[in-house]
């Protein structure tokens, strides 16, 4: 493990009212890694993502990205630094065609910066990106209003929006939920391709089987704390993890 650290979370806590959603949690993600985060419902996974992406500010602790402190950086700036995320609850612009939904991320200052000050033909880029995540070009799915598309497509639209920002660190919040097996099978190659391109990826997932197949490392959260961290096989052997899972979801 000599790769540089992309993300370092130091002793972070977020308290809502009297409940600690994330409780003195520390973790590290190295460049090019694919880390899976699992845990029962309400274990603080999404709050952790919100903290990293800057949508929620922590009660204490700090977050370093490539050595830079981003704890209190505004969310849009964090995106422009190269962290992009998907949302668990997708809420696209329902009345717009799917490819028009891609325009806003493609309008981002980060995209222009990476393209050397030019945006290029956003519609064409949008259609290409959507085809990559499985919007069949022949069937003109990308031209249909987002409101008419099934959940599986909306999830993949969400993924395409995140990829459009050419992130270095990609955080996928329950991407697979709501997708059919076939859809998951079609998205896995997209994720593997991103890994080959050297992207660091964090995945929050409830579909453990699919996750274990692609993740390098698994972190388990419960009650806002990290209870296990390691390769998938050893993590699932841990007594504490078994208890957490059997106790709440069993």
């Amino acid at each position: 493990m000599s790769l540089p650290t992309t993300l370092r979370v130091e002793n972070i806590s977020k308290i809502f009212g009297r409940v600690a959603a994330v409780d003195h949690l520390s973790c590290e993600v190295r460049r090019g890694e694919l880390v899976g985060i699992i845990g029962p419902n309400g274990s603080g996974k999404t709050t952790l993502v919100n903290l990293i992406s800057g949508f929620v500010k922590p009660t204490s602790g700090r977050i370093l990205y490539n050595g830079q402190d981003i704890t209190y950086t505004a969310p849009h700036k964090i995106v422009c630094m190269g962290i992009s995320r998907t949302f668990q609850m997708v809420r696209p612009f329902y009345h717009l065609p799917a490819y028009k939904n891609m325009i806003i991320p493609l309008y981002s200052p980060r995209v222009r910066q990476l393209a050397g000050g030019r945006y290029g033909d956003r519609n064409a880029v949008a259609l290409d990106l959507l085809e990559e995540v499985g919007f069949e070009r022949d069937a003109n799915v990308a031209y249909k209003p987002a409101g008419t598309l099934p959940q599986g497509y909306l999830k993949r639209l969400e993924l395409a929006k995140a990829i459009a920002l050419s992130p270095e660190l990609l955080i996928l919040d329950e991407l697979f939920s709501g997708m059919s097996l076939a859809e998951v099978a079609s998205v896995v190659p997209v994720i593997e391709k991103l890994r080959l391109a050297g992207k660091t990826i964090i995945m929050i997932e409830h579909r453990l089987k699919e996750l274990f197949r692609i993740a390098d490392r698994i972190m388990v959260l419960n009650y806002g704390q990290k209870i296990a961290d390691g390769a998938s096989t050893e993590v699932m052997e841990s007594d504490e993890v078994k208890k957490a899972y059997l106790g709440s979801e069993g």
Partner: peptide, 18 residues
């Protein structure tokens, strides 16, 4: 489109780095 996006879903626009 970005302006209208802010009205419909500001979270999504922010998440696009805008």
């Amino acid at each position: 489109l970005v302006l209208k996006g802010i009205r419909d879903n500001d979270r999504s626009v922010t998440n696009a780095g805008i």
